[in-house]
Write a protein that binds this DNA or RNA. Sequence first.
DNA 1: TTCATATTGAAACATGTGTTTCAATTTAAT
DNA 2: ATTAAATTGAAACACATGTTTCAATATGAA
Lengths: 293, 293
Amino acid sequence: MQVSRSIQDTIMARFDGLSPKLRRAAEFVVEHPDEVATRTLRQVAKAANLAPPTLSRLARALDCETYEDLREICRGELKRRNRILADKAEALLQLSTETVPGAKSGVFIAQAGAAIENIQDLIESIDLEKLRSAAKTLATARKVVLFGTSSGLAVAQYFACMGRLAFDNWRVAGADGSLWATSLTDIGPGDAVFLVSIRPYGNLPVRAAQAARDAGAEVIAITDDLASPYVSIASECFIVGTESPQFFPSHIAALALIEGLMGMIVRRGGNKAAERIQQAESSAHSIGEYWVN
Amino acid sequence: MQVSRSIQDTIMARFDGLSPKLRRAAEFVVEHPDEVATRTLRQVAKAANLAPPTLSRLARALDCETYEDLREICRGELKRRNRILADKAEALLQLSTETVPGAKSGVFIAQAGAAIENIQDLIESIDLEKLRSAAKTLATARKVVLFGTSSGLAVAQYFACMGRLAFDNWRVAGADGSLWATSLTDIGPGDAVFLVSIRPYGNLPVRAAQAARDAGAEVIAITDDLASPYVSIASECFIVGTESPQFFPSHIAALALIEGLMGMIVRRGGNKAAERIQQAESSAHSIGEYWVN
DNA sequence: TTCATATTGAAACATGTGTTTCAATTTAAT
DNA sequence: ATTAAATTGAAACACATGTTTCAATATGAA
């Protein structure tokens, strides 16, 4: 079967050279390829609040002979998506069974499907009271130190990225050249420690968490198993699913938990947090840290 | 949302009372609802070897005001087939929302729900061919350099964690004290650069990506918008949804893409990658890096 | 057979289609 | 400030759309 280019690629190839209206049209087409495939030009134009000629011109700007060609690409997109859904259903069925070394693209779909299931499990099993309590701890702590090893560290750093926007007292242990010990020595009651640890559990974080707990700090942990050492160490421990058809455990659910937690924290933080975020953003703009245009 | 009757039901209801030609038309419509939804009456007529008025009359015979109504039913059929999974996810969400009372719980559920939707969109719109191509590039590159800023850096580091298990030529620019420039100077054809950049786009990565591209390296980018600078810079650019009820964009879909990509890469890598992974794991065990019991 | 009725497709029809023209307007360059 | 080029939408355009008409044909009843 001949594989037609996706509209995404078709549009991405020419997007930067498009005029404002044509961009709006292009955006509408990528977001609603089904409408383009099934409705008429004028109907699509009305739905997108655009003049009919704009769509006609868009087709030309995308190297199509005519609008009908663009529509044909959208038709292909619909068919492809149906095919992918079929693949997904199949891949999900084979998820539990052993994966065949025959190796086709089902790998990707199975992975993504597992990700969705892990998040669904998270939603169903999460203890909102515990979550609220953790949000309060992190939002009101005198100091928050985050750590982890390898993949857990990356996830913790992601959390810290967002946290630093809202608070000025979040630190990642081991970042900016400092040693873990340095970040943890002056920790005590009123402080909070946050960590993500997925199997295999690193040795250092376990001992660090233990030390923080002994020093009287709150320890909030995300881990993946009841047998994890953090279950007994942490004052607030969340267990997330890491099911994956691959050799590595999926960190998707952990990230979903973190994003949700962050949302609740900012909610708690109120205006102060919101102001700090806005301030951080505008100062980043003024020193030209961001790419524009 | 009101559910339109399926074409099967619509046609079965009146099939017995149809004349020979109308039956043939009806059969064609049930077998090719997509053609009816996307092509014109005359095109469908030709494809089915029927006179145009036959289809027009079929619509009337099926209690439709006009042929357009019949076409609308077929459109609904297509949408339904595409939306089954999304509906399922939504239903699960609905379920968990009902079982758990509480005002603030909405924040978390909404975030997780958006995460699922973003992954859903990713699965539906992903171009598997492009993915395979990216997997090949990363698996066979002489050297792979990963970078990003703030949240994007964290995600890239996560990717690097996994990549380093399978390959010894993956580096994160800016990690271990080296400057970006150092990591990027000796890059050229045969090398690959990978980056994640979600709005607002950092300035440095844009320039770095441009430089890498100019030097002849493959640039694989994950970003969030058609208007992103990477759309034109990258040789392989993936756009992921970042919808979120919070002030920050969700990186869940980006992570899902990365995990899926990693799966495909390891598949490609074959035994060599698998061996390296096992080796890394056992050596980590022998030096007591992992916590046991 | 004969007649009435139902079915069918070619051609004509009104209407809506995608496209082009063109004047108004914005944008960029000098 | 002036000019040239690009962008945009209203109106006009040629043409294709779905529908209807109508004559040809098939079907069935007497």
